[in-house]
Amino acid sequence: MGDNFGSLYLVATPIGNLEDITLRARRILTEVPIIACEDTRHTGLLLSRLEIDRAGRRLIAYHDLNEQKQAPILIGLLLQGQDCALVSDAGTPGISDPGYRVVKAARDAGIPVVPIPGPCAAVAALSVSGLPTDRFSFMGFVAPKSAKRLRQFQVLEPDRGTYVFYVPARNLVQVLDELSQVQPNCSVFIARELTKMFEEFISGTPAECKATLGDRVVKGEVTLLINPK
């Protein structure tokens, strides 16, 4: 490992409540000269709210659409000895967010990769769900099309513990209908708008959760936990 290489810090940021930023995360964001972020405007606002001066700090856009192009650029800066923080818009980088390509490239090059742990919607939802947490599978975002989701849900196995999905709010009711078809007796836990003003938790079978939602339009960020029976 080169002694003069910079370090790549994967910095978790709040998923809603600014008070969830850690002291260590704030210090790293204050010290590094480069911050790679999904949306420079979003991260710029976060720095402002944390009272971190942007002067002399370079924000580089790093997201799904440019990850393959930007990863080598970041590696080049790290090889030159510049430290870099990687952040997503919310939560832990690399967890259903861009990050793994530059992490792999950094490790392959012998560059130190340092986790700065903190908020993660999947773990936060699990911790308050009351569903089994000794074994769980993080599945990322549900498939975009209904037919694929039905196949996805049909193969969920009881002995695999709890499954964790991210669901676009606009699809939540349809997802519950699909679960009712293939896993009607499963235990479901919905965590919506975690750590935010309108945080909400709903639990029950898919049909019971749909009944609780009623006819309202579901908004916000949704984490869906499923424990098959």
Rank of each mutant, 00 (worst) to 15 (best):
N4C: 10
N4W: 10
G6N: 12
G6S: 12
G6E: 13
L8N: 00
A12P: 06
T13C: 05
I15H: 06
N17W: 12
L18S: 12
I21Q: 08
L23Q: 13
L23I: 15
R24L: 15
R26C: 04
L29H: 04
L29M: 09
T30W: 06
I34Q: 05
A36F: 04
E38F: 15
T40D: 08
H42T: 11
H42S: 09
L46H: 11
E51K: 10
E51R: 11
G56P: 04
R57W: 00
R57N: 01
R58E: 11
A61V: 03
H63M: 15
Q70K: 08
P72Q: 06
I75R: 05
G76T: 04
L77V: 02
L79T: 01
Q80L: 03
G81W: 09
G81N: 11
D83H: 14
L86P: 00
S88P: 09
D89T: 10
P93A: 12
I95A: 08
Y100W: 03
A105P: 02
A106K: 03
I111M: 02
I111H: 00
P112M: 10
V113E: 08
V113P: 10
V114M: 08
I116K: 07
P117H: 08
C120M: 07
A121P: 04
A122W: 15
V123Y: 12
A125G: 03
L126A: 07
V128W: 13
V128R: 14
V128K: 14
S129T: 04
L131W: 04
T133F: 12
D134E: 14
R135F: 13
F136D: 08
F138A: 07
M139Q: 12
M139T: 06
V142T: 09
A143D: 11
A147S: 15
A147K: 15
K148R: 14
L150G: 12
F153L: 08
V155N: 10
L156K: 02
P158S: 05
D159A: 09
R160D: 07
V164R: 06
F165C: 00
A169E: 02
A169Q: 00
R170G: 03
R170Q: 06
Q174V: 01
Q174P: 00
Q174H: 01
E178P: 00
E178M: 01
L179I: 03
P184N: 10
N185E: 11
F189Q: 02
I190T: 06
A191V: 01
A191T: 01
K196Y: 05
F201E: 03
F201T: 08
I202V: 11
G204M: 09
A207S: 00
T212P: 04
L213D: 05
G214A: 15
E221I: 03
V222P: 10
N227A: 13
N227L: 09
P228I: 12
P228F: 11
K229V: 05
